[in-house]
Design a protein around this nucleic acid. Structure first.
Length: 258
DNA sequence: AACGCGTTCAACCGCAGAATA
DNA sequence: TTATTCTGCGGTTGAACGCGT
């Protein structure tokens, strides 16, 4: 099926919205609700396509939209949720009332990504110093899982669609170190839902993992371990669960000794 | 003042999945 | 069951802006 491009019809306006257009859209939706977005512009008397109206409303005109700079708490949440979910902006936005996916996406690309790159590059330098002074770190592939933001993003990208369903997550920019993950049981990818309150956490035995031991990335380790072992829950079903773990309870999680 | 360059962010595009006929 | 339409999402674009020279 091939659909005609959204604004192919001649005469439909594109580009920035004027105050008048905003006002028309607001008052129409306040009176009638948005209903069918495609029909809305015609009914409201706007020379816009429905898609454009919807976007304008959702990202800018909706009364509960929060404008202004992001607080450090919000940024922290975005960073952690992005580690967890990758570029699933709408899922991240769901955790930040009043913020839109578009806004979060913009903030990520303009501020937070750079922020992480900067802090990671500092961290890499300090890790190198530590390694030189610690010859016993060898068996654990420290720094491999997530020592840079690019590692974070590759990890997250993998999570996004879980395209690489099997076994190996590999850091690309480390020279000789790698992180291996245990094979994932196919049942993990099933559409199963949490059946009842008694669903339990199944922790993998710690010796089956080769994983970073860097404290600053404990939450990533925890995610990997818990997510692959959370009995009976698919990824989205567990969202609130993970949110609680990462955002609220991070400090209280005990990781196994490696 | 003028220019070039980098950054920001609103808006667009195309796709995929859900809903409906 | 199939075809079509609608909605939501993530990636990308480009105008506006700020800053340095």
């Amino acid at each position: 099926m091939v659909r005609a491009p959204c604004c192919e019809k001649m005469g439909l306006k594109k580009g920035p919205w004027t105050q008048d257009e905003d006002q028309i859209l607001i008052s129409y939706i306040q009176k009638h609700g948005h209903g069918n977005w495609r029909a809305l512009p015609k009914l409201a008397g706007l020379l816009r396509c429905g898609k454009s109206c919807r976007l304008r409303w959702i990202n800018y005109l909706k009364p509960d939209i929060k404008r202004g700079n992001f607080s450090s708490e919000e940024e922290e949440i975005i960073i952690k949720m992005h580690e967890l979910l990758g570029n699933r902006w709408s899922a991240i936005a769901a955790k930040l009332p009043g913020r839109t996916d578009n806004e979060i996406k913009n903030v990520w690309h303009t501020h937070l990504k750079k922020k992480l790159v900067n802090s990671d590059s500092k961290r890499v330098v300090s890790n190198q110093k530590i390694k030189r002074s610690d010859s016993n770190s060898s068996t654990l592939t420290s720094s491999s899982a997530c020592t840079s933001s690019s590692d974070f993003s590759s990890f997250s990208e993998g999570n996004k669609n879980m395209n690489n369903k099997n076994s190996m997550i590999k850091s690309e920019d480390t020279e000789s170190e790698e992180t291996t993950m245990p094979p994932i049981d196919e049942s993990f990818w099933s559409e199963a839902t949490v059946e009842d309150e008694s669903s339990t956490m199944m922790m993998p035995s710690s010796n089956s993992w080769t994983i970073s031991n860097e404290p600053q990335f404990n939450y990533v380790e925890t995610f990997q371990q818990h997510s692959f072992g959370y009995n009976g829950s698919n990824f989205d079903d567990g969202m609130d669960f993970w949110y609680d773990i990462f955002i609220r309870s991070e400090e209280s999680i005990e990781l196994p000794e490696f």
